[in-house]
Nucleic acid binder design. Structure first.
Length: 271
DNA sequence: ATGGGCACCTGGCTGC
DNA sequence: TGCAGCCAGGTGCCCA
């Protein structure tokens, strides 16, 4: 489900509804997410005011007077802004009830998401401390990527999906960026030339930026906080297009499995 | 250190 | 129609 563009779209959607509001109540209907929602979390943030809504990789960081809520949408999570009285549906696990009468509602059928709290600097939290650079930051460069790839035999697709390489590139956008860069996904990372790493960095940045611009990709169930889908699916060149004609050259798109994830690519456009 | 594979969980789709 | 099997946007962790 949500990759970086969908998380960023979610962040932008919830931010104006949250910042400056007081959290009146935290309603945990189902604490069994990827990690159990801490029993003390509600007590720590109830009565505090939200001062920021940030994103690091695919984590959303809701900053309050008392500390930071760390929220991940996993594979199937989504956040909605609703009237606090709206009856919950299946998999509506947590509500943050605001003093505006609205609530932030976290729905996650597969429960791969999480909701944690830290009173300390969130960048030091164990889930965030080892994340590499943001792909949309200046620090993400072809030079740095190339240097890190030296001697690595791991496939370049797995390499760019590794959060120690660059943070927040998921399965859809890894395939799409490699298509745009003309790089075969199974190529060993260490064999990608210095110049092609520049192309790859630009492709990752472009594909993420474009996807954010149209609200992300909805494949099945992703919706933004207003309940609307993202429209990047129409712009996918390879993802879930196995057997279809490449939109650039007409060759049939191929699919193979890499580390239990489907990879899509064009054997003519990508070398 | 590196690379590969699994687990966590539900739901939707396919094919028999 | 029923049901088993497979697949899905993430990622931390374990193992060789």
């Amino acid at each position: 489900m949500p990759e970086l563009p969908e998380v960023e779209t979610t962040r932008r959607g919830i931010e104006p509804w949250l910042v400056g509001r007081r959290i009146e109540r935290v309603l945990v209907r189902e604490p069994r997410l990827r990690w159990r929602v801490p029993a003390g979390l509600a007590g720590k943030v109830t009565g505090t005011r939200v001062c920021s809504v940030a994103r690091r990789a695919k984590y959303l960081l809701i900053g309050t007077d008392a500390g930071t809520l760390i929220l991940h949408l996993g594979m199937s999570g989504s956040l909605r802004i609703l009237d606090a009285a709206t009856p919950p549906l299946a998999h509506d696990h947590v509500d943050l009830v605001l003093d505006s009468g609205r609530c932030l509602r976290f729905n996650d059928p597969r429960r791969f998401g999480c909701l944690l709290f830290t009173a300390a600097d969130p960048s030091r939290h164990r889930l965030l401390a080892n994340l590499a650079v943001e792909p949309l930051s200046e620090a993400f460069t072809g030079e740095a990527l190339w240097r890190r790839a030296r001697g690595k035999r791991v496939a370049v697709k797995a390499f760019i999906m590794d959060s120690r390489t660059v943070a927040g590139v998921g399965n859809i956008y890894a395939s799409e960026a490699l298509f745009r860069a003309g790089i075969r996904p199974g190529l060993a990372a260490g064999r990608v030339s210095r110049a092609r790493m520049d192309t790859l960095v630009a492709a990752i940045r472009d594909v993420l930026t474009e996807a954010i611009g149209v609200g992300g990709t909805t494949l099945r169930d992703y919706v933004n906080p207003s309940g609307m889908p993202g429209y990047f699916r129409q712009r996918l060149f390879v993802y879930e297009r196995s057997g279809k004609a490449c939109r650039r050259c007409g060759t049939a798109i191929r699919q193979f499995t890499q580390g239990a994830r489907s990879t899509y690519w064009c054997p003519h456009c990508q070398r």
